[in-house]
């Protein structure tokens, strides 16, 4: 023990201002992950719409603990290919018993893989939502179609507006094009408008065969979504481009052949059947008590 301790190395007396600077640094570092923020936004709006339509969406089950998460991380790749339940869950639709598992797997993918792949994963997840939208439309489950559409639209707008996401937009533009003829007429117009906006903003010619490519009715901008880039209208030329093949290969999964759309059936009283319905049925136990 040195008698000179404290004199050989005089302590730095931190000022209150220095502490506040450090606290500000902590605050700056504590930003939410962009993908988390985007995913949660879709979930929040989706839940709100579902609730406003009288669909009682169960709270999402909390994530697993550290041990469970670590085990799942370690065995994720193997489990995904080997477990029939997980494989089956990949085809699940909102409201299906395995749908929560499907979404959980998507979340785990994001957490396991490097941040550099998050945009692609998010693009894949969005393509999945669009695919689910089409299959729900084929099924005639219009309640869930509408609720899911909110998520799809917000996620799509965010991606097109996001420079990193814009690079991935082609993947699900292809899916949206494939979805076009399976939706009701007004919904086709909305989807076409999304495609036109994205194509116009990215300077790519519209996909041949899509209804809105270069037609006067769809060559408009002035959208009200705010986050989506304004479209200058698609180019007039209808020439085919070679990118269609590449885009098609990036499509997550082939679409089923078009089936006649069934008549909307009376919706059963299923309070847990929201697009993001999770396993738990517990209600919010706290809403901030007073106001």
């Amino acid at each position: 023990m040195s008698l000179f301790r404290g004199t050989m190395r005089p302590p730095t007396i931190l000022s209150d201002e220095a502490i506040e600077r450090y606290l500000a640094a902590i605050r700056a570092e504590l930003a939410p992950d962009p993908l988390f923020r985007r995913r949660l936004r879709g979930e929040v709006t989706s839940r709100f719409v579902a609730a406003s339509e009288g669909i009682d969406v169960a709270p999402r089950s909390r994530s697993m603990g550290r041990v469970g998460r670590a085990v799942l991380y370690a065995s994720f790749t193997l489990a995904l290919s080997a477990t029939s339940v997980l494989a089956a869950s990949q085809q699940a639709l909102p409201g299906d018993p395995l749908y929560a598992l499907k979404r959980q797997v998507e979340d785990i993918r994001v957490q396991v893989l490097p941040a550099g792949l998050h945009d692609d994963l998010a693009a894949y997840a969005l393509a999945e939502r669009i695919d689910e939208l089409g299959r729900l439309a084929d099924r005639g489950d219009w309640g869930r179609v509408e609720a899911l559409a909110v998520t799809v639209e917000h996620d799509f707008d965010a991606f097109v507006a996001d420079s990193a996401g814009a690079d991935s937009a082609d993947k699900y533009l292809t899916v949206l094009r494939g979805l076009l003829d399976r939706l009701p007429e007004p919904a086709q117009e909305a989807v076409q408008a999304v495609i036109d906006q994205a194509s116009g903003a990215r300077g790519t010619p519209p996909e041949p065969g899509t209804r809105g490519g270069g037609t006067p009715a769809s060559s408009s901008g002035g959208g009200n979504s705010g986050s989506a880039p304004e479209a200058g209208g698609p180019p007039d030329d209808d020439s085919k481009d070679g990118s269609a093949t590449d885009e098609a290969t990036a499509t997550p999964k082939p679409k089923p052949t078009k089936a006649p759309r069934p008549e909307p059936t009376p919706k059963p009283a299923n309070p847990n059947a929201g697009p993001d319905a999770r396993s738990s049925n517990q209600g919010p136990d706290d809403d901030g008590d007073d106001q």
Partner: peptide, 24 residues
């Protein structure tokens, strides 16, 4: 130039005759 309606709005307007009436 046609204003772009939110997809949910458009879908909602198609459901008025369905069993689950979705308000536009």
């Amino acid at each position: 130039m046609r204003d772009r309606l939110p997809l949910s709005t458009t879908l909602g307007s198609t459901l008025v005759d369905g069993a689950l009436r979705a308000p536009a």
